[in-house]
Amino acid sequence: MPDPILVAIAAALAGKGVGNLYDLVREKFAGRSEAKAALEAARDADAESPQVEVLSEELARTEREDPQFSAELRALWQEISVAQRADRDGVVNQISGDVSGKVVQARDIEGGISF
Rank of each mutant, 00 (worst) to 15 (best):
M1E: 15
M1W: 14
M1S: 15
P2Q: 11
D3G: 05
D3E: 08
P4Q: 05
P4F: 02
I5T: 12
L6G: 06
A10K: 03
A11G: 05
A12E: 10
L13R: 04
A14F: 01
G15W: 04
K16H: 14
K16T: 13
G17T: 09
V18P: 00
G19I: 03
N20R: 14
L21S: 06
Y22T: 05
D23Y: 04
D23M: 12
D23F: 08
L24W: 02
L24I: 01
R26F: 07
R26I: 05
K28T: 08
A30H: 07
A30V: 10
G31Q: 05
R32T: 13
R32D: 15
S33Y: 07
S33F: 10
A35S: 08
A35E: 06
K36T: 07
A38N: 02
L39K: 00
A41F: 01
A41Y: 05
A41M: 03
A42D: 00
R43V: 01
R43W: 00
R43M: 02
D44L: 08
A45T: 01
D46M: 06
A47H: 02
E48H: 09
P50N: 11
P50S: 14
Q51E: 10
V52I: 05
E53D: 06
E53S: 06
E53V: 06
V54H: 05
E57D: 12
A60K: 11
A60S: 15
R61C: 11
R61S: 13
R61K: 15
E63T: 09
R64T: 12
R64F: 11
R64D: 14
R64H: 12
D66I: 00
D66F: 04
P67V: 04
Q68F: 15
F69M: 01
F69Q: 00
S70F: 00
S70Q: 12
E72S: 05
L73R: 03
R74L: 09
A75W: 03
Q78C: 08
Q78A: 13
Q78F: 10
E79M: 13
E79T: 12
S81N: 12
S81C: 07
V82D: 09
A83Y: 10
Q84I: 14
Q84G: 15
A86Y: 04
A86S: 09
A86I: 02
A86N: 06
A86F: 03
A86W: 03
D87Q: 14
R88Y: 10
R88D: 12
D89F: 15
G90H: 09
G90C: 10
G90W: 08
N93I: 15
Q94F: 13
S96F: 13
S96P: 03
S96N: 13
G97I: 02
D98Y: 12
S100E: 12
K102V: 11
K102H: 09
K102C: 07
V103D: 01
V104K: 07
V104C: 05
Q105I: 11
Q105T: 09
A106V: 03
A106L: 03
R107A: 11
E110N: 14
G112V: 08
I113Q: 02
I113C: 02
S114H: 13
F115D: 15
